[in-house]
Computed example of a mutant assay.
Amino acid sequence: MTNVRTFFRTALLATALVAAPALADGPIADRGEAVETAQFERDRATILNMAGDYKVRFDMQESTPWMAGYEPLDRKISGGHESVRVIEDTGTKIILQHLLVVGSEGEEFVIKHWRQDWEYEPEKILAYTGPNSWEWMEMPERLRNGRWSQTVYQVDDSPRYAGWGEWQDSQGIRRWRSNWTWRPLARRDAVRDPVYDRYASINRHQLTPTGWIHWQDNTKMMPDSAGEDGLAPVVQEYVLNTYDRFDDYNVAAADEYWAATADYWAAVRTQWDAVAEANGGIAIAEEAQTGTVISGRLLTIANEIKDGALSEADAIAEARQLITQATAEGAATAAEVAEANGEY
């Protein structure tokens, strides 16, 4: 799959973004086995504490324009109810699945939302490297000690973005901050066909007395041959997602959905992982409304399992075929673009 890897022509830039703040922080000195073990266990407890049932508030605001003439969008606030479940815990890897419960009382339905994987001292992360492409990137060995990666996946379990950082305590607050990461456009932006096509971001997670917050510092970037590394900043955006513990909604709906579809989604995760390992990453076409071009069908299949309209075996077989075909087509397109650009 050398051709596919060659296509990821933004990898060096992504590596620079991924490494910059971590290098600025420097390696974490060896603190001795007892301290390292205590810190590790505290980190785990903090991550696991993000599981639960919540009232969620999403607050998004563009602020400083970096491009002359650009008018920042109006602030957008939304919310809902979200259940977060631990679906895997191996000790050094914790997977949290988010499930949105929407609709009026008695008519609620569940939307499989984002997923976050936390891994202790990983050797590599699956990082976004530009439109339609993700690539494995090595985490520098001297920066692994004491750090956790967080990889965020889209609703269909395809990758979204990844970064690493250290859980720290300051001013009595427990915090995790990522390095710089590339991120694909969120649907709220992608559907508007904006001039920018990706974000350069720092993500932070902090526990609060009533739950936790996830806040993002996003620089929206556009292709620009005259810009540094072929990109130019357009506008700054700040996003604050607040999770307050709350269970006065149909929590059972989330658990019923997951009980019916968990094995299917486990098979989907395994298939994405197999493609990433075999190809050195993932190349797949995206669309504004749904993320990947197969996202809508993968989600519908899960609903058909829950409703009894499709057997689990047939569902898994179809999902595997969809992922295999879509990523093969994405890889072929990537290779064609690379060849056209004279990259191999």
Results as ranks from 00 to 15, higher is better:
7 F>C: 06
7 F>Q: 01
9 R>L: 02
12 L>G: 11
12 L>N: 13
15 T>C: 07
15 T>Y: 11
16 A>R: 13
18 V>E: 08
26 G>K: 10
29 A>D: 13
35 V>L: 11
40 F>Q: 04
61 Q>G: 13
65 P>A: 10
67 M>P: 00
69 G>N: 06
71 E>D: 08
83 S>Q: 10
85 R>F: 11
88 E>S: 14
90 T>K: 14
90 T>Y: 02
92 T>H: 09
95 I>D: 12
97 Q>F: 06
98 H>V: 00
100 L>W: 12
100 L>H: 05
102 V>T: 13
102 V>K: 13
105 E>A: 14
108 E>D: 15
121 E>Y: 09
126 L>Q: 00
129 T>Q: 08
132 N>R: 12
139 M>D: 00
139 M>A: 14
141 E>A: 15
148 W>A: 06
149 S>P: 02
150 Q>D: 04
151 T>W: 01
154 Q>M: 12
155 V>W: 02
155 V>D: 00
157 D>Y: 05
160 R>E: 02
163 G>E: 03
167 W>P: 01
168 Q>A: 12
168 Q>S: 14
173 I>G: 01
179 N>E: 05
184 P>L: 02
198 R>L: 14
199 Y>L: 00
206 Q>M: 12
219 T>E: 05
221 M>A: 04
222 M>F: 04
223 P>R: 06
224 D>L: 04
224 D>H: 05
226 A>C: 00
226 A>N: 11
228 E>A: 13
230 G>W: 07
254 A>W: 06
259 A>M: 11
260 A>W: 03
264 Y>D: 07
266 A>F: 07
269 R>C: 11
271 Q>R: 15
271 Q>W: 05
272 W>R: 05
272 W>T: 03
274 A>S: 15
275 V>I: 15
278 A>Y: 07
286 E>W: 05
288 A>S: 12
290 T>R: 01
299 L>C: 01
300 T>P: 00
304 E>S: 11
305 I>K: 01
306 K>S: 11
308 G>A: 01
308 G>T: 02
309 A>G: 12
319 A>R: 06
322 L>H: 03
326 A>I: 01
332 A>E: 15
333 T>M: 12
339 E>I: 10
